[in-house]
Design a binder for these strands. Structure first.
Length: 354
DNA sequence: TAGGCCATCTGGTCCT
DNA sequence: AGGACCAGATGGCCTA
């Protein structure tokens, strides 16, 4: 089977093409075409009534209203703009039925199209570094995190930056809402709970995989910390990151041991191809200079200063973060939550105690 | 109750 | 002609 390997320039282009995700809010009004603006005008003047609300009589009524508008008189007495295009035919009963049938079919297609889109988005969620079945990222947060993830990994490729570093988490959290930032930071720093590790151990017979995961600095067991639904770093992701550190790593199949989440049956292309990307000759991308991302080493990435709370409280949905974890956003209860040297050192250095 | 997110319906446009 | 795609409108659900 042929596998396409993406080089750094590909990654850069991809990240650059997603730059609109950085904008706060999803409005793209600025890109609106004149036709679309015209369409807005057509919508002015009343709510569009759906055909689930309209009986056939209502449809006829609406048709008559439309006919009346054709001779509309403007505010100054002049004739208003007439509707362009061919004059509408009278809605006969048969036409109404055909129209209705067409509409029903189109609705069904649109529904299934959107379901397909949502499935794809769900698959994307599963390869994100903090996939949680119970605390689903919203669509926009998923896209933003995906963009950040790609960008962060490209930085790893380019600069050899450690995926365990503060900067890596910083990049991942860029532009995300505070709850999502907390989720990501928590997943990457605190790693899966002992429960997950135990599960992995059970599944893997207490050898190999569990050692690998437990040995990873990112996955240091954190007694007293909440277990999912606060999200977890998938074992597969740990493996990817571990794989970045050197060629001696024994990389078992990610499908052999999962961390309690359903196995993703689709291709795991983005993370799995990372190590092979190291072998590629990296060429500077023309988009490199266009990237306006900057890592912010030294920032407290758990602080509200860095991650505005404009959408905080709405994302992610579902059970809210554990009080201890929430409190850690500001108070950093090192003795309770961060008992590993790595995490404590990291957090302590951020708050300036070292 | 307000605000965010989401699913659905809808009509317009483009393409085959 | 019909399907895919898109964006606006709407209402429901949920959480703070």
């Amino acid at each position: 089977m042929m596998t396409k390997h993406f080089g750094k320039s590909d990654v850069s282009e991809l990240v650059s093409s997603l730059s609109w995700l950085e904008e706060d809010g999803s409005s793209q009004d600025g890109d609106e075409s004149p036709e679309m603006r015209g369409r807005h005008d057509l919508n002015v003047g009343g709510r569009i009534r759906s055909y689930t609300e309209l009986g056939s009589e209502d449809m006829e009524e609406e048709e008559e209203e439309d006919d009346d508008h054709e001779e509309e008189v403007g505010p100054n007495g002049e004739n208003g703009p007439k509707r362009r295009g061919p004059k509408r035919k009278k809605m006969t009963k048969a036409r109404q039925e055909r129209f209705r049938a067409r509409r029903v079919k189109a609705n069904a297609r649109e529904r299934s199209r959107m379901h397909g889109l949502n499935n794809a988005l769900d698959n994307l969620r599963r390869v994100m570094p903090c996939y949680s079945k119970t605390q689903k990222l919203s669509k926009i947060e998923t896209l933003r995190l995906a963009r950040n993830y790609i960008w962060a990994l490209s930085e790893v490729l380019e600069n050899g930056q450690s995926p365990e570093s503060h900067g890596f988490v910083d990049m991942l959290c860029k532009g995300l809402s505070q709850p999502t930032s907390n989720l990501v930071a928590g997943c990457l720093q605190l790693g899966p709970s002992p429960l997950i590790l135990n599960k992995l151990e059970d599944k893997c017979g207490g050898s190999g995989m569990s050692d690998v995961v437990a040995g990873h600095p990112l996955s240091y067991p954190s007694p007293g910390l909440p277990s999912p639904p606060y999200g977890s770093l998938e074992a597969s992701h740990l493996l990817h990151m571990k794989g970045l550190k050197g060629p001696t790593y024994d990389n078992p199949s990610p499908n052999e041991c999962s961390s309690g989440t359903p196995p993703y049956d689709g291709p795991l292309t983005p993370p799995l191809s990372i190590s092979s990307n190291f072998a590629l000759k990296q060429e500077p991308s023309p988009h490199d200079s266009e990237r306006n991302f900057t890592a912010h080493p030294g920032h407290h990435y758990l602080s509200s200063h860095h991650y505005p709370t404009s959408t905080a409280g709405s994302l992610p949905r579902g059970p809210q973060a554990h009080p201890v974890f929430q409190a850690s956003r500001y108070e950093l209860p090192l003795d309770v939550a961060f008992d590993s040297f790595t995490s404590s050192h990291l957090i302590a250095s951020q708050i300036g105690t070292i």
